[in-house]
């Protein structure tokens, strides 16, 4: 990639939009996942009894639905990201590429 192309893409408002939207989205989701996981780990380390508390009259404990929920959350977060990235973000990327090609043809 030559310097001129770099400048052109860098100054394209659509590129700036893509980068800012996507990194915000990706980091937000990452932080959600990290908070969920490390909250779980902290609970195990400092207060395992919380996870061992009974949900009802039987043997089922709070920890089991929470554990399964974290697995499901990981999958759902992945789905949310892929949906938006493969739609909105890829569309923006395509527009950036098209503009670049058109400009290069024009030049």
């Amino acid at each position: 990639m030559n310097k001129e192309t770099v400048e052109r893409i860098k100054n394209n408002p659509k590129y700036q939009e893509l980068v800012s939207k996507r990194s915000k989205f990706a980091w937000t989701l990452s932080i959600i996942m990290l908070v969920v996981y490390y909250a779980f780990i902290m609970l195990i380390a400092f207060s395992p009894a919380t996870l061992g508390a009974k949900t009802g009259t039987g043997v089922m404990t709070v920890g089991i639905p929470i554990g399964i929920a974290i697995i499901v959350i990981a999958f759902i977060l992945a789905g949310i990201y892929v949906r938006r990235a493969n739609g909105e973000f890829d569309l923006l990327t395509q527009e950036i590429k098209d503009e670049l090609n058109n400009e290069q043809v024009a030049v």
Binding site: W27, I44, A78, Y81
Partner: peptide
């Protein structure tokens, strides 16, 4: 029992992060 699930969760949660930050 439950401790096995703790390992599983640890093995899994790296994946979404790989997706958000690294894969593409």
């Amino acid at each position: 029992g439950y401790d096995g699930l703790i390992y599983s969760i640890g093995f899994l949660v790296g994946w979404p992060i790989i997706l958000f930050l690294v894969s593409e």
